[in-house]
């Protein structure tokens, strides 16, 4: 089934920030799903900017219940659809807080039970809706309002939780990462996921101009840099095995970091070589693990 790029199922008039990665990502997701879908969203930026009563931006059936139960609600939707012999696909679209942290119990349960649905995490790497607090998806050294950089802090002290591997370990038949910076890749992976039977997980890198500190016009440029530096590996997994990887001519991580206020403390007032090296090591490990490099770096 070909993707109709002109299909608009996410409407104008929503209240996302100008240049929002989530809004772009969600719009692309719906182009890939088409109309025959039911979307479940947890609480978060997406839910809030798209559905202040009565001004819904959704042109497909959509349900929001709570912050942490989207996967459980989707389980019920999926079972009810099958019972009624209906054809709609079930897709969750939610943020990283709802996915990595507060909703992980429901998410794990739903994947273990093997429901036929696709869970799409729009990952902007912190709790943006409540004001940029760190989540389990926040990368190492990112300054957030609850992991601020300071005289004794370089920001978030822990690396990002490896959610795709966790979901693959549940036996998910299809797990993929992608980015709003690569619209065709994103749409193709969503289409693959919804057409794969069983619980599928797609994690979308969704740069947040407000939370990360960059101009809204740079959302795609920043997203590309995350991929090109190896900090956001783009890959697909089928039945637990990595089957496809986006190869890159890798750039140094600081090209990505220095564009964003959340990493500014690594460069000003003085350059923190040791910390930048640690982040480079994360990218190097990603490159080695997933075989990201087009050719070995000289």
């Amino acid at each position: 089934m070909a993707i109709d790029k002109t299909l608009e199922l996410f409407d104008c008039g929503h209240r996302a920030c100008a240049g929002c990665g989530h809004a772009l990502g969600t719009r692309l997701v719906l182009k890939a799903t088409g109309r025959d879908v039911i979307v479940v969203s947890p609480t978060g930026c997406l839910e809030v900017f798209s559905t202040p009563y009565p001004e819904t931006a959704w042109r497909v059936p959509w349900i929001h219940s709570l912050f942490e139960n989207a996967a459980a609600v989707a389980s019920g939707v999926e079972v009810a659809l099958k019972r009624q012999k209906r054809s709609e696909k079930v897709v969750v679209v939610g943020g990283d807080g709802a996915t990595f942290d507060i909703g992980v119990l429901c998410l794990s349960g739903a994947f273990e039970r093997g429901h036929d649905f696709t869970y799409i995490c729009m990952d902007n790497e912190a709790y943006m809706n409540t004001g940029i607090q760190r989540s389990g998806a926040t990368p190492y050294d990112a300054s957030t309002t609850t992991s601020p950089a300071g005289a004794r802090s370089f920001g978030n002290r822990r690396p990002k939780k490896d959610m795709p591997q966790i979901m693959a370990a549940h036996g998910a038949p299809y797990v993929a990462t992608t980015s709003v910076a690569y619209p065709m890749d994103l749409m193709q992976k969503v289409e693959r996921a919804i057409n794969t039977e069983g619980p599928c997980y797609v994690q979308v890198h969704s740069p947040c101009c407000t939370g990360w500190g960059f101009e809204g016009s740079q959302t795609i440029a920043i997203g590309k840099l995350a991929v090109e530096t190896g900090l956001w590996p783009v890959f697909e997994m089928n039945n637990g095995q990595v089957t496809k990887v986006k190869k890159i001519m890798r750039k140094p991580v600081e090209e990505y970091l220095k564009q964003q206020k959340r990493f500014r403390h690594l460069f000003k007032p003085i350059r923190q070589e040791a910390e930048i090296a640690k982040i480079q090591a994360i990218a190097d490990a990603n490159a080695s693990r997933y075989g990201l490099d087009l050719k070995p770096r000289k």
Binding site: D11, C12, G13, H14, R15, A18, S50, T51, Y53, P54, E55, T56, A57, W58, R59
Partner: peptide
């Protein structure tokens, strides 16, 4: 709510 209602919010004013 049914679709179409967000169009009442003319976000062009933000520009």
């Amino acid at each position: 709510a049914r679709p179409g209602k967000s169009r009442e919010n003319r976000t062009g004013a933000w520009r």
